[in-house]
Nucleic acid binder design. Structure first.
Lengths: 343, 343
DNA sequence: GTGGGAATTGTTAACGCACACAATCCGGAG
DNA sequence: CTCCGGATTGTGTGCGTTAACAATTCCCAC
């Protein structure tokens, strides 16, 4: 078979008639290399198809230029987008990203994932793990690898990048109240997620601030349409409900379906607002008004923050300064799923 | 700051009073090590918190235990799931996975991604890149790194794992014909994707086989609900249409919306069948009958195939044998969006 | 007790690159 | 013509691990 080994720097040097060090200099754009020499080296590089060995470079420089991403479930729309944003930004900054998906968010698996990544030598880790338990587990990882949490609520005890969930919930709730609804019901996401908690808080605070009655919220076990559907069937039996704010778009989809099956019309009978603004929400029946969060941007910002921390050797990751909490404001995308209540 | 370096094998050896080679032996479960020695070494490892340096190991063994995944857009449901399946399986086999997202599928960016991954030393690459152009670009990458395409149609010129698109389209088309529809219309996905082509072919072949008229298909520019909606508005104006097979679920969602807006009822006036069976389709209005493909499994199979090729040094990746084309049969999930036509 | 072989441990040399330092070259001032 | 300083190039070593080989120890049969 092809037992011929990949060419190494010494091979290039020999072919170009220089020392390996000169080859290294050319490769690193060192200034003091005669133009003729540089050309000869580059020609040799091309001829041999030489590519530097990453492991050797890492061993010598102690830098892997690799970052890790831990994600709970990259299948969900939000995490998938953030991962995409992270990868984009990483490429720009000439970093590699290796992913570690965890099936469950218990302490063990999260710490395992961190370990795997550390074994591989990542210089920093971004965590897409919105559950409170995950954040807790992360609090006491060895401090030799910087951590950034992304999309995990805004009150994490780590450097973090997140959308302002409370502001988003406030936007949605105010919008519905402004339309004239007496109050707004709420489908809460799974309460083990910070995002669900914060959205619920934002909703509740807004109602209280405006002196509206705070109805009992319905909490889901997960973020799926199925859960939205099941809670929706209960909503449908309550004649008092005129407006519902859903913790995310999937749940809203399930809710829409349940209401429709119950013979209720949206928005004529009940107004609905979602959260996330996934690309499909515009085509729900009816088109869903939703709070938009820019997951892509979230991912990019997280990566930039991490690189800043990594490149900045003085500040340890545990030193969570003001600047290490980035909060991005959401905005409301108005479509047709909400309207003023019937008199 | 904490300038103390991470402990290395020599440190462990010194503390345990043995040579570094003995440490290495213990770490690799080499048989000929006295139990007492092993214990002393393990104790030293624990005490120092020693973790082997991946770069050094790679340099010595010439193995990175890292695989690359190139994906067009990890934001889409299919790719996201496959990536997830891949990562799961990789972990099981003790491989790392690093991702390279490409924004566009032109030759350049795909080859760039391959290069980046090779620079990092991946032992093999899985490509989630369903466009024909991507497959073409991949045909002539240097053969020193094994490639596997996943979810990219079944006729790729590479080792591949894919769902049987034609069979899936046949399933859907036959189902609608069996319900009594004279013929079935089709919303084609973007024709630059193999999957779209294969689904269209399956649909067309089935109609021809059964002697049904083959109506002009409507081709989309992408897979989005928006496109489905736009094509759907045209479908809605054609009184002959009684059944539509959509190339994917997102397009079906857009179609449902367009039909509803046109005052047509599904399934009473028009039956609709989708493809993919995403988790939400059950909650569309109405609940969508769809062809299910198990993306997760696709990813896992792709990884296993790749590991087989990587671990098998004799067969080059270009040697695409029978066994290197894995085709997974889809199945139809029947819900309520299709029924027999009105007389 | 002693030779022989297996079990156990140590020594040394890669692996491929970067960095510190030494050596050489060149042109112009003296 | 000689010497000096900067530009250019070469030499040697370290990074932390594995693997080939050498050395030592141990145990038992003779």
């Amino acid at each position: 078979m092809d037992t011929e080994r990949a060419p190494v720097m010494a091979d290039v040097a020999r072919l170009a008639g220089v020392s390996h060090q000169t080859v290294s200099r050319v490769l690193h754009d060192h200034p003091n290399v005669r133009a003729a020499t540089r050309d000869r080296v580059l020609a040799a590089v091309r001829e041999l198809g030489y590519r530097p060995n990453a492991a050797a470079r890492t061993l010598a420089t102690r830098r892997t230029r690799t970052l890790g991403v831990i994600s709970f479930n990259t299948t969900l729309y939000g995490p998938a987008c953030m991962l995409y944003g992270i990868e984009q930004a990483a490429r720009q900054h000439e970093y590699f990203v290796t992913v570690a998906a965890v099936g469950t968010l218990d302490r063990r698996s999260v710490l395992d994932a961190v370990d795997r990544l550390r074994d591989q030598g990542v210089e920093g880790i971004i965590v897409i793990a919105p559950q409170t338990s995950a954040i807790a587990a992360l609090a006491n990882v060895p401090s030799d690898v910087p951590l950034v949490a992304v999309g995990c609520g805004t009150h994490a005890a780590l450097a973090s990048v997140a959308v302002d969930n409370e502001a988003g919930a406030e936007l949605a709730t105010n919008y519905l109240l402004d339309l004239g609804h007496r109050t707004v019901h709420h489908l809460v996401g799974p309460r083990s997620w910070l995002d669900a908690q914060e959205r619920e808080a934002g909703w509740r605070n807004t109602l209280e601030k405006r002196g509206a009655e705070v109805p009992e919220p319905l909490a889901g076990v997960d973020w799926t349409a199925r859960t939205g559907y099941e809670l929706g069937r209960r909503i449908a039996t309550d004649p008092d409900v005129t407006a519902v704010f859903c913790a995310n778009d999937h749940m809203a989809l399930g809710l829409l379906r349940a209401l429709q099956q119950a013979g209720l019309r949206v928005p004529e009978d009940i107004s609905v607002v979602g959260f996330d603004d996934m690309p499909e929400t515009e085509y729900f029946g009816p088109s869903l008004t939703s709070v938009r969060q820019d997951f892509d941007e979230l991912g990019r910002r997280a990566l930039r923050l991490l690189i800043e921390i990594v490149g900045d050797p003085d500040a340890g990751p545990q030193v969570v300064e003001e600047a290490h909490h980035i909060v991005i404001p959401p905005n409301l995308v108005v479509r047709t799923s909400a309207t003023r209540p019937r008199p």
